[in-house]
């Protein structure tokens, strides 16, 4: 039997729908923008993004916010594609964090 993926929740029992909305902060909008731009430039496909979101461990899938999942998946996709390396990203993140601390 094929096990049902964690993301494949159609028809499963769940609670009342909370009609939540939020105004998307700029960083979330930029994640969305990067995804759209990279799609139209054929650097990524929506299927790769979805695959990498679905590959998140169930605990992370539930804990991460929507755009946190998107940025994780986008980054993973670009590493898989060889557009960036994880070393490069690690160095850049360190650099940006240092810059943030320095104010």
């Amino acid at each position: 039997m094929i096990e049902r993926g964690h993301h494949d929740m159609g028809g499963q029992p769940a609670g009342k729908v909370e009609r939540t909305e939020h105004d998307y902060p700029e960083w979330e909008r930029r994640v969305d923008a990067m995804v759209q731009l990279l799609r139209t430039r054929r650097k990524i496909t929506v299927d790769e993004l979805r695959k990498n979101i679905e590959a998140l461990p169930p605990e992370a899938y539930d804990r991460l916010s929507y755009y946190e999942k998107w940025i994780s998946s986008l980054t993973q996709t670009l590493i898989q594609r060889g557009v960036i390396t994880s070393d490069e990203l690690g160095r850049k993140m360190e650099q940006v964090e240092q810059r943030a601390k320095a104010g």
Partner: peptide, 13 residues
């Protein structure tokens, strides 16, 4: 952490 990832990825690209 994820905002940091967004900024870093964007700068790399």
């Amino acid at each position: 952490y994820y905002q940091l990832m967004e900024t870093s990825l964007r700068e790399l690209l």
